[in-house]
Design a protein around this nucleic acid. Structure first.
Lengths: 231, 231
DNA sequence: GTACAACTGAGTACACCGTACTCGGTTCTC
DNA sequence: GAGAACCGAGTACGGTGTACTCAGTTGTAC
């Protein structure tokens, strides 16, 4: 990493913080693909190559974005004492944050956040399950499995939304476009259960929040049952 | 979709199947980013734009790839009767397949596979938990949560590997490069549990397979406990 | 047997992208 | 005031996806 304030020379025209702020603004509004060095430069009012004075490349921009957002779902400093409530809140909060920053899921799925905020978040997450009689390794496995579930669930959730957003169609139009294909699939008779899902989903089943909570609670149930001393 | 064999005109020089085969070969060996229309064209020995006779665009190429691989982890036609063993096998098999095709996790995380093989896989997965007294909706939630966990876990797993692969360093060099940064984090004393992870991970804790199985079993435990009639 | 329509592969061109390298001008330290 | 250090910007290169055009080939219908 490069120093934030230089010793000599003219004062920088902007800061890394402003750069990340601009990047977040663009990505939140138009998706991750809208981010390019040229775009960020015009957004910030500077030359394209000037950005490379502040950042080694595009990858570092994304690292900065991730770490900035990581602050948003930083768990509280000290655990409440109820590990289950804490883990659940962590999951719900993570999902909420990823919904607010839809590009996030695509990134965190592939790249672990090793920035200061990311490490702090991990540390506090581990603290939630400390003192339950688990080894450090088991603690990692517990926290990791919850995070894996959240990331996987939200990624799938946002995948569909992203696909829709890219085509520029609204929900109605998009479903209308998919309908004939789904119809042919159902008509083949080869996918009986899929067909049941399609026909019964008319009366809107579980809403997404509920479904997310369902799997999460099953996971937490299983973790609770496996603790050395049940609490 | 366009017809596979045209009525009139010269016989096509290649087929969609050959195109997907080439794409899979490239992606498996060099990663998803190595795939470009120009690259695929030279790989197949044709002009770049000729590909667009077979495929609407790059997105469809990837759809075809996903559906081709989906065949690899197609669950058996008829469930064994042991839903838990079936779901577990599905998860393990999915993970194995994604390891064989490392680009897969990045794609399935974001885009659901709606091709024929993908739908068939979903259908058979649902069949595993049919007849357990669950509503179609609950069945979707159960299967979906397992898939979410697998996708999330494997994505994280492969993210690190991908990052390493892109730098071209082997495991030793890569860890050596990260070491000083981790050291400084530990030395701050602000991340006590993270520090414990680092210091205790010297004696190689759980191996990845075990850790994957740990979270998976917790999830399945929780699902089992929530079934209307325990089996 | 021939005309014609359909279809083929290939080429050209455009608007993007990330970033290596270079240069003149500004500002701080000594 | 002299000089080093650092700034912003510009140019250029090799890549990307794909819209559009065009000559050539092939099957079918008469």
């Amino acid at each position: 990493m490069r120093p934030d304030q230089p010793a000599r020379g003219p004062r920088p025209a902007f800061s890394r913080a402003q750069l990340t702020e601009a990047a977040l603004r663009v990505a939140d509004a138009e998706g991750l693909d809208a981010i390019s060095m040229r775009r960020l430069a015009t957004e910030i009012g500077s030359g394209t190559m000037s950005l490379y004075r502040y950042v080694t490349g595009k990858d570092e921009v994304i690292d900065l974005m991730v770490d900035a957002v990581a602050m948003d779902f930083l768990p509280p400093d000290v655990p409440s004492g109820d590990w289950r409530a804490d883990l659940r809140a962590l999951a719900v909060q993570s999902r909420r944050t990823m919904h607010r920053h839809p590009w996030m899921a695509r990134v965190t799925a592939t790249r672990q956040s090793a920035g200061p905020n990311g490490v702090r978040a991990l540390d506090r997450s581990l603290a939630m399950v400390d003192g339950l009689g688990l080894s450090v390794d088991a603690m990692l496995a517990v926290v990791g499995s919850v995070i894996a579930y959240v990331n996987g669930y939200v990624a799938a959730e946002l995948g569909e939304r992203e696909a829709r957003r890219r085509t520029g169609l609204d929900v109605q139009q998009w479903m209308a476009r998919q309908a004939p294909y789904i119809e042919t699939l159902v008509k083949t008779g080869e996918y009986p259960l899929f067909a049941r899902v399609v026909t019964e989903s008319g009366r809107e089943l579980m809403d997404p929040d509920e479904r997310f909570g369902y799997g999460l609670d099953r996971l937490l149930d299983g973790i609770a049952a496996s603790l050395p001393v049940s609490r």
